[in-house]
C-alpha cells in the first residue's frame, strides 16, 4: 500500500535508527513510503500549550500536504506523540467548520494549501494490525521471536484519550502491541509500566520526576524478567534508552533493559539483521535480545 509518510522530527534527530529501520522494514511489508519532506513538526503538545491555533494550523498544513499525495491510502506516522498531538488538532479541525475555514485561510495565504476534513492518519502500529493484518504479518515472519520476552510500552499519546484515538471494542488499539509481539512469535510480558508515562515531557522541567518514571518502569520490566521493551514512540525511547543510565541511578537499580523501536522488532522477525535496523545505535546494547556472534534472535531464520 502507498502511504503519505510522516516520520516526525526525533526519528531524524536523536533516534535515527527509527527512521532507518522503518525504511528497511517497509518494502518487506509492501508499504510504499512517500515521505512528507515539506511537512513540519507536530508540536508535540508543546506548541499547543503555547498557542493552540498555531499547533492546529501547522498540523493542518501537514495534513493538507498528505492529502496532496496522489494515490496514497492514508497518512502514516511512526511516533505516538505525533499521532496524539496531530490527532488532537485534527479533532478540533474536523469538529468545527468555521474554525477549519479560518485555519485554511491561513494555509491558503501562505502556500495555497487546504485541509479537507476527515484525514486518516495512523501510527505504524495501527497500520500493521488494521491494514496489513496480523495473519499476513505472521506469514511473513522468518525468524520468530521464540522465547523472547518482550514488554510492550505504549506510551501515552497512542492510548489516551480513548475516545479521540478511536479505541473501542472493535478497535482495541490499546492491545495492538501485545498482539504484534505475539504475532511475531514473542512472549508478552505483563508489568506495571505497560500504559504508563515515560516521563520525557517533563525532562527539562522536573528531571527528577521524569527519570523516576522511566527508571520505575524499566525496573518493573526487569523484575518481570523481560528481555526487552518495545516502543512505538521515539520520545519514550529517549527517556527509556538514552537516559537509562541516569534513570537507573535515580531509582538505585542496575538496569540494562534494551528498548526496541517497533519497526526494529518487526524487522528482526522478518529476518533483517540488527545492524540494518540500527540496533547498534542504542545506548543500552540489546545483547539480551541478540546474540551478536550469530546475529540471531531466538530461533534461526527460516529458509
Amino acid at each position: 500500500m502507498k502511504v503519505a509518510y510522516w516520520p516526525g522530527c526525533v526519528s531524524r534527530g536523536f533516534t535515527p535508527e527509527l527512521h532507518g529501520s522503518m525504511a528497511a522494514v517497509a518494502p518487506l511489508l509492501d508499504i510504499e513510503l512517500v515521505e512528507l519532506d515539506r511537512a513540519n513538526c507536530c508540536g508535540a503538545g508543546v506548541i499547543a500549550e503555547h498557542n493552540q491555533e498555531l499547533a492546529d494550523t501547522l498540523n493542518a498544513r501537514t495534513f493538507a500536504l498528505a492529502q496532496q499525495v496522489q494515490g496514497a491510502d492514508l497518512m502514516m506516522n511512526i511516533c505516538s506523540t505525533c499521532q496524539g498531538a496531530q490527532g488532537e488538532c485534527q479533532e478540533r479541525l474536523d469538529a468545527n467548520a468555521d474554525y477549519r475555514a479560518q485555519i485554511n485561510e491561513t494555509l491558503q495565504e501562505t502556500e495555497g494549501l487546504t485541509y479537507e476534513q476527515g484525514l486518516t492518519n495512523k501510527n505504524f502500529l495501527w497500520l500493521l494490525v488494521e491494514e496489513i493484518g496480523l495473519e499476513k504479518l505472521k506469514a511473513m515472519v522468518k525468524r520468530p521471536l521464540t522465547n523472547l520476552r518482550v514488554g510492550p510500552f505504549y506510551g501515552c499519546y497512542i492510548v489516551r484519550p480513548t475516545d479521540r484515538l478511536g479505541i473501542d471494542a472493535e478497535h482495541p488499539r490499546d492491545q495492538y502491541l501485545h498482539w504484534v509481539i505475539e504475532a511475531l512469535g514473542g512472549t508478552v510480558i505483563d508489568y506495571a509500566g505497560v500504559y504508563k508515562c515515560c516521563g520525557f515531557p517533563v525532562i527539562t522541567m522536573n528531571k527528577d520526576v521524569s527519570l523516576k518514571q522511566a527508571g520505575t518502569h524499566l525496573a518493573d520490566a526487569t523484575d518481570a524478567e523481560a528481555d526487552c521493551l518495545v516502543v512505538p514512540c521515539p520520545l519514550c525511547h529517549l527517556n527509556l534508552d538514552l537516559q537509562q543510565p541516569l534513570a537507573a541511578k535515580k531509582v538505585n537499580r542496575e538496569l540494562a533493559m534494551p528498548v526496541l523501536h517497533l519497526p526494529q522488532l518487526v524487522g528482526l522477525a522478518l529476518g533483517l539483521e540488527p545492524k540494518q535496523l540500527g540496533m547498534n545505535k542504542h545506548v543500552v546494547k540489546p545483547t539480551s535480545v541478540i546474540d551478536w556472534t550469530t546475529s540471531v534472535v531466538g530461533a534461526p531464520v527460516a529458509a
Binding site: 503519505a4 498528505a66 492529502q67 496514497a72 491510502d73 492514508l74 497518512m75 490527532g87 485534527q90 479533532e91 474536523d94 479537507e116 476534513q117 476527515g118 484525514l119 486518516t120 492518519n121 495512523k122 495501527w126 488494521e130 491494514e131 475516545d163 479521540r164 484515538l165 478511536g166 479505541i167 478497535h171
Partner: peptide, 18 residues
C-alpha cells in the same frame, strides 16, 4: 484519504473506518 461520514460524528474520523 477522506473518510465517509461515520455513524458517530463525535469521533475523529481517523479512528472510525479502519
Amino acid at each position: 484519504m477522506t473518510s465517509a461520514p461515520g455513524p458517530n460524528p463525535h469521533r475523529p474520523t481517523s479512528a472510525s473506518e479502519s
